[in-house]
């Protein structure tokens, strides 16, 4: 596992939507490197033929019936919203093309 660079930390922060300060970028670059070196120990285990566990208890096929029920009152939906307009959540402008 290669050392993590400041540029990589910056990229991760962008992916994770964290507007880190320069100080934080410096600080985290060092810490993440140490942590990642440490957790990279998992690769020491020879586990070629070992199946991964994504779920600790083997349960499968859990479904509910297709029955519609009313959800929340709109007043309860709106109550938590940082900005609300015209019965909708108001969000800042979206620069993306989509």
């Amino acid at each position: 596992m290669t050392a993590i660079t400041r540029a990589e930390v910056e990229h991760l922060a962008r992916l994770a939507r964290l507007q880190l300060t320069d100080d934080e970028l410096d600080h985290y670059a060092g810490q993440l490197d140490v942590i990642l070196q440490s957790v990279a120990r998992v690769s020491e285990v020879a586990a070629e033929d070992i199946p991964p566990t994504s779920h600790p208890i083997p349960v499968q096929n859990v479904f509910r019936d297709d029955v519609a029920r009313p959800g929340l009152d709109r007043s309860a939906v709106a109550a938590g919203a940082p900005a609300w307009e015209d019965d909708r959540f108001r969000v800042p402008r979206i620069l993306d093309e989509e």
Binding site: A16, V39, V45, P51
Partner: peptide
């Protein structure tokens, strides 16, 4: 940030995937 890194394409198998095997 550690989690974002560990799930990134290119690192998934070595980190998250391998950790799930250790779990087994």
């Amino acid at each position: 940030m550690i989690g974002t890194y560990a799930l990134s394409s290119g690192y998934y198998d070595a980190y998250y995937g391998q950790a799930q095997k250790v779990r087994t």
